[in-house]
Nucleic acid binder design. Structure first.
Lengths: 141, 141
DNA sequence: ATGCAAATGCAAGGCGTTTGCAAGTAAGTT
DNA sequence: AACTTACTTGCAAACGCCTTGCATTTGCAT
């Protein structure tokens, strides 16, 4: 899979038209280390790339999520954050100091899933783990 | 700690006036097996106990949360849910069929916390685990 | 080049939650 | 028991994040 310039093929493969906005959004998501909100995306696009409407950002992200290109996570501050789906299993660290979100690939689930099935007949289809605390920069003194 | 009738002492201890509404909300939370939304609380109060304003419900719940009497969890459907803080460590099962929320006391965290500290210098202060799937009643056929 | 379905901008709306303010009430003081 | 004062409540309006309807524009297959 080629790297950085154009996402036309990916979009086509998913049955979507390749547009300036969609390419720009995918590029921005690719460049962003950590999950970002729709509004952050919107502002960054407006300043650096192309004028775009916030509703287009939301619509585009929704489509990407439905195509599994993007992962959406709703955090405790009431805002959803989006990141490219690299198809790794991921969780998030949420810094209560600066609200930065960091993705990690560690996952402690494992046997709990089977235990729930046995104990209370609950079929797990997925899970979300948010870890709160202080990042390196915001450490408590 | 006495059981069911009146919460005046608890409220006083926390520096709050004991009011009809606050007692009713605490009672309802106590009677509710699983975490419930502010609106569910509001409706239940209106029908069974006392006319109350939705903003009062929110304000009261916020205070209870700030006093650590109640735990608030924001779920992926955009609604927060509230439950009495029994001071056990809890997580939630979220049924994607009927949107019922079930509290469990299992927790798979453990060593991940230390590992994060060592690996990326992140000081964990808390975490939230939401598990999605199908409850007994909504099992896939 | 042309035509059509899909994508976009715009403005309005939805939904859960919050807020400012005036009126009501709990509970300590007299 | 009445007085006082700060806390609590209802009401209506507003907020923040997100969604939607509709007219216009655009990608792209023909």
């Amino acid at each position: 899979m080629e790297e950085n310039t154009n996402y036309t093929e990916i979009l086509k493969r998913e049955g979507m038209k390749s547009t300036k906005h969609r390419n720009a959004i995918l590029l921005l998501l690719e460049q962003s280390e950590d999950p970002i909100t729709a509004e952050e995306l919107y502002i960054s696009l407006k300043e650096n790339t192309a004028l775009i409407n916030l509703s287009t950002v939301y619509r585009t992200l929704d489509i990407f999520v439905s195509k599994n290109l993007v992962i959406k996570s709703t955090m405790d501050d009431g805002k959803a954050r989006y990141e490219l789906n690299h198809h790794e299993h991921k969780h998030h660290l949420f810094c209560v100091g600066c609200h930065k979100v960091i993705s990690i690939e560690d996952c402690p689930m494992g046997e709990l899933q089977e235990s729930l099935k046995k104990k209370i007949d609950f079929d797990v289809t997925g899970h979300k783990l948010e870890i709160y605390g202080y990042c390196h920069n915001c450490k408590k003194v």
